[in-house]
Design a protein around this nucleic acid. Structure first.
Lengths: 192, 192
DNA sequence: CTCGTTTACCTACAGGGTGTAGGTTTGGGT
DNA sequence: ACCCAAACCTACACCCTGTAGGTAAACGAG
């Protein structure tokens, strides 16, 4: 019997593929084993278990998203950077729904600080350079950006926008416009 | 052997309790059966299965949140209404993390239109009455509000804000301020 | 108050996922 | 050519889902 030549990375990639194709909740050690042509028990030699598998998919998704986001903001600033940055996430969420869903799973402090987390923080902070947001408010602005983009994509993926009239895609540019407007007028917004 | 006197509602309530205590992913037919003191098979007489159980928890959570949100906006308008409405969700998310997580699960068109969905839409629309947002933009504004609040609470629950300095609670009022500012200046924001 | 019907709950079982123990094969290094 | 680490296997125990069919408690009718 030829050997599959598995590595943890190959298994995680298969899991991510499966997540995108069948949904994150269908990602099981057994299903991944089937996909790579191996018995379930063999997978446990490369990973610590189901939790570990999902955690690695989360980390993969966060890294990939950071890559794409970095690409998007490169060479842009202000509104352009903001729009491209946000669009990078939306494109990723559509292309890789399972990975995107995985990216929301909680991570331990250690994994979060070691992985792509800081890159995401740095990227969204860099967007603020095109606006007049005071240094002290950067954290809040970054959180607001992240929350709004994540919230929109999450609700869109959950179909929450499918029950009212205009397609979610019509609201997307308005969301980006709003965030831009908010950042442009930030000082006055904190002045009540 | 005394009879437990189960009803679908009692089972769903037990499931919701379990979700809040142990996490939504620990909600299984078996666990709920244990909690109410019955064998797993007995639960299937009252529900159609695990999917049905989770769907009902989702609906329960949406109804409860609509109740609290309605309570919060009653007798308020403008910024007060917005802040109270947003706070209602945050309070609920803290008090009932499992239910709150369940509220994000996708629902079919039928369940969504029959349940609390329309109430939530009506509630957030009512907040716009305190602002000068043109009728045609209401949908977009409602989606923006929902996305931002949901996104913030979801990221906060996932611990995404625990890795940088100020506690998430410090950013929350800034988010509400920002949304208020955005709605107050809405017309100019759509004018680029 | 007994009797029959309903139905709440049961046991038993099949199927699939997780995870461990321990055996067998494969391939690279010496 | 051989050896050893590792990749992969079978076999098993355990839990969750869901179905089939049985037992017994409640409840209304006479």
């Amino acid at each position: 019997m030829p050997r599959a030549g598995l590595t943890p990375d190959l298994i995680v990639l298969a899991a991510a593929t499966l997540a995108d194709r069948d949904g994150l909740d269908r990602v099981t050690v057994s299903a991944v084993a089937r996909l790579v042509g191996v018995k379930p028990a063999s997978v446990y030699a490369h990973l610590e278990g189901a939790d570990d598998l999902l955690r690695r998919v989360t980390q993969l998704a966060l890294e990939e998203m950071a890559d794409r986001a970095a690409d998007a903001v490169a060479g842009r600033s202000g509104r352009d950077a903001l729009a491209a940055w946000a669009q990078a996430f939306r494109t990723y969420a559509f292309a890789h729904p399972g990975r995107y869903a995985a990216s929301h799973r909680p991570l331990g402090r250690t994994e979060a600080l070691a992985g792509a987390g800081p890159r995401h923080t740095a990227l969204s902070t860099s967007i603020l350079r095109g606006y007049d947001v005071p240094e002290a408010d950067h954290v809040h602005a970054v959180r607001l950006l992240g929350a709004t983009i994540h919230g929109f994509l999450d609700l869109e993926a959950a179909g929450s926008f499918d029950h009212s009239a205009p397609p979610a895609a019509d609201s997307w540019p308005r969301v980006v416009d709003s965030l831009d407007a908010l950042l442009r007028t930030w000082p006055s917004s904190s002045a009540r």
